[in-house]
Design a protein around this nucleic acid. Structure first.
Length: 255
DNA sequence: ATGGCTCGTGTAACGAGA
């Protein structure tokens, strides 16, 4: 079984790429972020026609998340029940006995922005809810755009980025607190090429110069860690015309 | 030194992203 995450930066613009990528890759579960679509505009028929079930939670202009799956989707939860929020950043569902949580963690903008404490309190509340969910789901996966590069090895220029949003110590601690519940960064379970990233700035030839960050993650419970045989960043869609600034991350789980 | 690009909105710039 392959489980993946991709921040598409507008599903309206990127739907053809999502369908092309799914046609080219045997993906069983795909979590999308930044769909930027209200639910009435979600391309349900096109995704169904591609052979996927889908659940989604969107809003106008910003945010928006979805989970696509080859098999039936049940027990859908939209947003963190412990954190009332108008922003649509979380959708969870059970698929093939796996509890899947798709997250679009707030960006935070800058350390002196109001959005930064929002990000930290959002993450603290996420941890509390995930702790609850993990008590009843041993097969647990939480994947998405975390907007946090866990370590300096996940940053193209750690000196230039030092102390900035996405790499600051409180953000990294918040991610570590999540991992401390018994979750594992699937990408780091395996030997990986140095300078592996999942996002590159659209400006300044960021992708061609590999000026990127690894901020999209697949976190797995102990039971799913034991089943995980691979985790890869697929850079190919970032090379296509009119790409998202993020590229998919894929984990393979033994049945 | 600054901003660089790509979205949505809405039909011109501007906010937001990261």
């Amino acid at each position: 079984m392959k489980i993946a995450t991709w921040n598409v930066n507008s599903l309206k613009v990127r739907l053809p790429q999502v369908l092309q990528w799914l046609a080219n890759n045997p993906i069983d579960i795909l979590c999308l972020q930044e769909t930027k679509l209200t639910d009435d505009k979600f391309p349900l028929a096109e995704i169904n026609a591609a052979g996927y079930h889908v659940v989604f939670s969107g809003q106008k202009t910003y945010n928006g998340v979805a989970i696509l799956a080859r098999t039936a989707i049940s027990d859908v939860v939209k947003n963190n029940p412990l954190f009332p929020d108008e922003q649509q950043r979380i959708i969870a569902a059970t698929i093939n006995g796996v509890r899947v949580v798709c997250v679009y963690v707030p960006n935070g903008q800058a350390l002196d922005s109001d959005k930064y404490p929002y990000k930290l309190s959002w993450l603290a509340s996420l941890r509390e809810w995930v702790a609850q969910e993990m008590q009843t789901h041993s097969k647990f996966a939480i994947l998405g755009d975390y907007n946090i590069a866990p370590k300096d090895e996940d940053v193209h220029d750690p000196v230039a980025w030092e102390g900035q949003v996405l790499v600051s110590e409180p953000e990294r601690s918040a991610l570590q607190n999540l991992l401390d519940l018994g979750l594992h960064d699937a990408f780091r379970l395996f030997e990986q090429a140095p300078k592996s990233y999942s996002w590159w700035d659209y400006r300044q030839m960021g992708f061609r110069l590999n000026k990127g960050l690894r901020i999209d993650h697949i976190l797995l419970s102990n039971e799913l860690k034991a089943a995980c045989t691979a985790c890869e960043i697929d850079k190919l869609p970032r090379k296509w015309e009119q790409p998202s600034d993020h590229t998919p991350v894929v984990a393979t789980l033994a049945e």
